[in-house]
């Protein structure tokens, strides 16, 4: 019964959020100084003003904003998200294609940052106060105060331009036919963007894990475990991991928003054709349907992350899991 109620209220909250985000986005884009028709035809073209007016009329740009929003909303409720101006394709199709590309990038970065952050956090927490701890901490503080795109640029300059180890951009080799692209090609193109994207997540999870493990090592149950003959290593294995895993996993799922935000920047730097890159394009071309589509999609994505985090917390924590049975 409680679960149903929880699911219901979550669903309502999600719908409200989607609605709110779409309104804010819509009015932000239409107040953008970029004229969609100009962006569409390009500044060099010699299309006459009359022709431009025809396009604007065709797209419904001359209608009052509220009416335009309502039209969009009506179509959305019928499952139609409209066509992207920039890509000249249905928005749904763009989202689908782009998301698959982004997903690979985001999952890779997410897994790397989670594992790396967790390990660094444990090392620095267990040996807190040591030289290693100080190095890891400094490293994390620097990372967390550095924007992802800047790190991306740096990596690009060093590893792609100067050393030539990695490609300078895109998800597949330029000029290679789609059917010839190998998995290795894709991985090769993925490494730098994924690494860039993972870096911002690392410090978050590492610093959090560090603090948690310090608390755990100071806890009464660890003192008792030592009194019963457990070595430091056994204490970490038996009690440390168990007690820090739940908050770490929760945090990692709740970090979907940073992940998505970071992917917009990272994809831009590496010209990686993902969802974040599509969002930038849509913004620069005042592509209202696509931008709204991306916005809604990102809401769903972040919401899903938080939802999973909440669910997992309930499943993993015995106090909530078995406490509710009583």
């Amino acid at each position: 019964m409680n679960t149903l109620k929880y699911l219901g209220s979550t669903l309502i909250r999600m719908l409200l959020l989607l609605f709110g985000v779409s309104i804010v986005c819509f009015f932000l884009i239409i107040s953008s100084p970029i004229d969609p028709v100009d962006a569409y035809v390009g500044s060099e073209s010699n299309i006459s003003q009359e022709q431009k007016d025809v396009i604007a009329e065709h797209w419904g740009l001359n209608d009052p904003p509220v009416q335009r929003y309502i039209t969009w909303l009506k179509n959305l409720l019928h499952g139609d998200m409209g066509d992207s101006i920039a890509f000249k394709k249905p928005v749904v199709q763009v989202l689908k294609e782009r998301f698959v590309t982004s997903l690979v990038l985001m999952i890779t970065a997410w897994v790397i940052s989670g594992i790396l952050g967790f390990i660094l956090g444990i090392l620095s927490g267990v040996f807190s106060g040591s030289v290693m701890d100080r190095i890891i901490k400094t490293f994390c503080f620097i990372l967390s105060s550095t924007p992802a795109f800047w790190i991306g640029l740096l990596l690009l300059i060093v590893f792609s331009v100067n050393l030539g180890w990695f490609p300078v951009g895109f998800a597949v080799p330029v000029g290679k036919a789609a059917e010839d692209v190998t998995l290795l090609d894709r991985i090769y193109h993925l490494i730098l963007p994924a690494f860039t994207l993972s870096i911002t997540g690392v410090s978050n999870i590492a610093l959090h894990t560090r603090q948690k493990i310090i608390d755990v090592m100071k806890s009464e149950y660890v003192l008792f475990a030592k009194a019963r003959g457990e070595t430091t290593w056994q204490v970490i294995k038996r009690h440390g991991l168990r007690n820090i895993a739940i908050p770490a996993i929760t945090l990692q799922f709740a970090s979907f928003s940073e992940l998505f935000g970071g992917s917009v920047l990272a994809e831009q730097v590496f010209s990686y054709p993902g969802l974040g890159n599509a969002a930038t394009t849509a913004g620069l071309k005042s592509d209202v349907p696509l931008l709204l589509g991306v916005a809604l999609f990102s809401v769903l994505f972040v919401f899903a992350g938080n939802f999973i985090a909440n669910l997992l917390y309930g499943i993993l924590n015995p106090e909530i899991r078995e406490g509710s049975e009583k």
């Binding site: 149950y221 003192l223 008792f224 009194a227 019963r228 003959g229 038996r238 007690n243 924590n317 015995p318």
Partner: peptide, 19 residues
Amino acid sequence: RGKEIALVPQSVAYLDPLM
């Protein structure tokens, strides 16, 4: 410790809450 010399602590706070 943990064999011939044992500690009996105050309360359940000395037990791992997740084990």
